[in-house]
Computed example of a mutant assay.
Amino acid sequence: MPAQPLLPESGRRVFVALGDSFTEGVGDRDERLPNGVRGWADRVAEKLAKAQPGWKYANLAIRSKRLRHIIDEQLEPALQMKPTLVTLYAGGNDILDLKTDMTALMASYEQLVAQLAGTGATVVLFTGFDVKVSALLEPLKKRNAFYNQQVRAIAAKYGAVLVDYWCLDAFHDRRMWDSDRLHMSKAGHKYLAGQVLDQLGVPHKITLKDWEPPTRLTLREWEQRQRRWIHDWVLPLFGRKLRGVTLGDELTARWPKPVKVPRKGGLKKLVAEDPAGVAEG
């Protein structure tokens, strides 16, 4: 944990989360919450509110967004909220597109970070994890390594807090991942929330899930899982690419304006008490 608190002891407390599916919360299903997911950012917001009453929280992240979308659609609304804490994960979807110019991508990423850091807010950045989805994606490893190298350098340059996701060994367990193998499971989101809180010096009781060692799959079980994964995730993904659509096209931000996070009951209590007011902020 940091030696000095990174968050305001008093005054305004506004947490704004920017990004794509990683920050929206995909993989951590909860139909009671906007877009049917919860995610690590919601969990961080709730722990912030318990540690320091008065925190407000907005989450502008939407699945499938590229860096350019985050800059065009999320940056200005975030700046208008005058945040004191900002989290940003962006560029993961761009890395998966082989046409992406990585040098240009990271130049745009740095410009985005510079604008966020210029607000005086505490900025939290993330490296990307080397997800072992398929041997077909191994050529992307060098692109991911370049991205991570640049994120580390940019975090140091602008005094941002870095959550080095690449180095979190707990995510080598397949149970930390959802069935699509690209998004964290509920356990993964919960654990990542603890890592973010650790970097911010916020107390919490989140611990790594105490699992039995994973069982070794038989060849038949492995083949069945592969077929199910291809049918449920790979083919629909390619279908969307051919049609030029994404899963985020019809979605709006989960928490589009800062909402005051209850100390008890969390965001679920907020939705239960005033479902219409959540969308309005």
Rank of each mutant, 00 (worst) to 15 (best):
G265F: 02
L197I: 11
F238V: 10
V278M: 09
L168M: 13
A45F: 00
T252D: 10
R32I: 01
K141Q: 12
A78F: 06
L136W: 11
R175W: 04
T252I: 13
T84R: 12
Q4R: 13
A155D: 01
K264W: 03
G248Q: 05
W166N: 12
Y89I: 11
Q149M: 12
K241G: 04
K264V: 14
P214E: 02
P258V: 01
A58F: 13
F15Q: 08
A117N: 03
P5C: 11
E280M: 11
I154W: 04
L270C: 02
K56C: 14
N93D: 08
L136H: 11
V278W: 11
G120A: 07
M102T: 08
V16R: 04
K209P: 02
E223T: 15
L96W: 04
L48R: 11
A253T: 05
W166R: 14
Q149L: 14
V16F: 06
P203T: 11
D164G: 02
P262T: 06
A49C: 07
T218G: 11
Q150Y: 10
L48A: 07
S21A: 11
W229G: 06
G39V: 00
Q199A: 15
V196E: 03
V259T: 06
L237I: 04
S179D: 12
R152V: 05
V26Y: 10
R263A: 10
G266P: 01
W177M: 06
A153C: 03
K269I: 05
H204S: 09
A170E: 15
Q199M: 13
K50I: 11
H172W: 06
T218N: 08
L140N: 10
N93I: 07
E9T: 14
G91Y: 03
K257I: 00
H183E: 00
R63A: 01
D198Q: 12
A193F: 00
L140H: 07
Y158I: 07
F238A: 04
L6E: 07
L251E: 02
